[in-house]
Design a binder for these strands. Structure first.
Length: 196
DNA sequence: CTTCAGATGCTCT
DNA sequence: GAGCATCTGAAGA
């Protein structure tokens, strides 16, 4: 499987957001890879989007990563205890990113590694409720992949975090309003959430 | 199955 | 000092 190159990310954010669905997200810790199939994404485009942290090209310490080259990981802390993983998109200097909201393990071994990081047990020992709501949210996904702000700014061309093209071409992509951005005025209605 | 309150700390004003 | 790109557990239906 081919790793996605910087050129993949250096495009229109909505295109990248849709095309990431079905790709394989790989996280390597202590030399061991955990792989998730990406099933839900959202676009954030600073140029025109009040929901984006860097709306209006606002530069702060936190948003600095959004101005990094495309193909950089933007990770921040939310609600005091959860992390969100994004990939920087567009040409360098255009603050925009894709939020990774959900995924699913590609193999039983990946399910075990994700379950260990998230619940401290093997996947067979998860409750039915835990199984049903395993990786269906950005905070859960980061917990399962042991991602924190320590990984903010990481290049997706390195060995710790990257994305592979699994050759999947989803034939049906759903779109809807984004989650949890009620403050964003007209942008609350942008159909920039995509899922399989 | 659903709703709901509370947790918790960093960032920006 | 306010608010946040969320999640959990408890309680009710």
């Amino acid at each position: 499987m081919e790793r996605l190159q910087p050129e993949f990310y250096a495009r229109d954010t909505l295109t990248v957001t849709r095309e990431l669905l079905g790709k394989h997200l790989v996280r390597v810790t202590d030399g061991v890879a955990t792989t998730l199939r990406i099933t839900e994404t959202e676009a954030y485009i600073g140029r025109m989007d009040k929901a984006c942290h860097a709306y209006g090209y606002k530069r702060t310490k936190r948003t600095e990563t959004l101005f990094a080259p495309p193909g950089t990981a933007y990770i921040y802390l939310i609600y005091g205890m959860y992390h969100c993983l994004n990939f920087v998109t567009e040409a360098e200097g255009e603050p925009a990113a894709v939020l990774l909201r959900a995924g699913e393990p590609v193999s039983p071994a990946d399910a075990d590694r994700a379950a260990l990081a998230r619940f401290g047990c093997l996947s067979q020992d998860m409750t039915a409720y835990q199984r049903k709501n395993f990786l269906n949210g950005p905070g859960k996904l980061c917990k399962a992949l042991s991602l924190t702000t320590a990984q903010n700014g990481l290049s997706l061309q390195g060995e710790e975090l990257y994305v592979l093209d699994a050759g999947e071409h989803p034939k049906e992509i759903h779109a809807s309003k984004r989650i949890g951005i009620d403050y964003a005025e007209e942008a609350v209605d942008f159909p920039w959430r995509f899922y399989l």
